[in-house]
Design a protein around this nucleic acid. Sequence first.
DNA 1: CTCCCTAATCGTATATTTGCGATATAAGAT
DNA 2: ATCTTATATCGCAAATATACGATTAGGGAG
Lengths: 111, 111
Amino acid sequence: MAIHKKEEFSQKEQDLAAFAKALAHPARIAILKLLAQRNECICGEIVEVLPLSQSTVSQHLKELKTAGLINGNIDGPRSCYCINWKAFEKFMGEFSFLFNKLKVQNEKACC
Amino acid sequence: MAIHKKEEFSQKEQDLAAFAKALAHPARIAILKLLAQRNECICGEIVEVLPLSQSTVSQHLKELKTAGLINGNIDGPRSCYCINWKAFEKFMGEFSFLFNKLKVQNEKACC
DNA sequence: CTCCCTAATCGTATATTTGCGATATAAGAT
DNA sequence: ATCTTATATCGCAAATATACGATTAGGGAG
């Protein structure tokens, strides 16, 4: 890649792409699923469930956090994560807006 | 990456991740937006709109097609793409199922 | 058939992601 | 103060992704 061209796209496009990138790995999907399923936020239980090392899981958690999809209470000995539903809904909403809405006027596709 | 661990996750997790990965680049978001906006399916007009070379755009189109998000009529001189709304809805539905549904029982988050 | 035009593919350079072991950090227990 | 436990971070290796120019392929026009 000579130069990153990502900056040349609109902010909204970049934001949606960043959101999608955060979801673009089965481990992160699995983490989010776990966080969504448990009543209590989890910490290192994730490490036991996933087929990945502790450091790798920690890295995935960091990516999800950086993307704003999860919140983390790093309080001392154990840290507690949970889904940031607000951010989640925001992005899902934007996707729906972008694609579901435009779909109506475009039903007669050629292929 | 010593070994790819992606295979160790469930098929559904892998599928969702693959879908997200297809969306994980502003260029591909822009392409999908374009395809959704135009009544007619487009071909190389995309190249003119995007700040990328023809070969790069072609590669992104290929990725979207491989992911099943778009259909392509490669009919001779010019090829015509359009969004595969069915696949799109399938994935959006699965995301909603996974996250929106689980949200209800998990409103009292700790962080 | 030869000349265009459009689009796909190849080869390659560079950037980013993924994964892990080792190490650091931070708080509670002894 | 030291040990333990739970996480985060660093450094590195390998795999992927991104981008582009050059080339190839496949029609239509003349």
